[in-house]
């Protein structure tokens, strides 16, 4: 959506770059560590666990019941199957930091 300044998008490569610079680890190892952090969080959630990182926020799983949706183009009603979704609840600290900066 909107962004207050034109700040670029941060990616895995940028995270690895910062780890390389601050820790002095080789680039490939830094990228492996970024992947490992993401993989650990993904694995926990695939196992049905919520992930809570203090100071940052929580990834919370929610189970959605089946509901009736509509194809917006044709108007045909279709059932939306029950599914599990992942939501992010930012910590108060992160919320305050983002609100203050704007």
């Amino acid at each position: 959506m909107d962004s207050m300044r034109s700040v670029g998008t941060l990616t895995r490569a940028d995270l690895a770059e910062t780890i390389n610079r601050k820790m002095g680890f080789p680039r490939s190892e830094s990228l492996d560590l970024v992947e490992a952090i993401l993989a650990k969080m993904c694995d926990a959630m695939a196992d049905g666990e919520n992930v809570k990182i203090s100071g940052f926020g929580s990834f919370v799983l929610r189970d959605k019941k089946e509901r009736i949706g509509r194809n917006p183009k044709t108007g045909v009603e279709v059932p939306i199957t029950p599914r599990r979704v992942m939501t992010f609840r930012a910590s108060q600290k992160l919320k305050d930091r983002i609100a203050k900066a704007s």
């Binding site: 962004s3 995270l15 680890f25 993401l38």
Partner: peptide, 26 residues
């Protein structure tokens, strides 16, 4: 330290008004 850098960099970029794209994750 690595884990702290990871979450700090994401937080800092969001505070700057930017986005963080971690393909596959979100």
């Amino acid at each position: 330290q690595v884990v702290d850098i990871f979450f700090e960099e994401i937080s800092a970029r969001l505070a700057e008004g930017g986005r963080v794209e971690l393909r596959g994750f979100g």
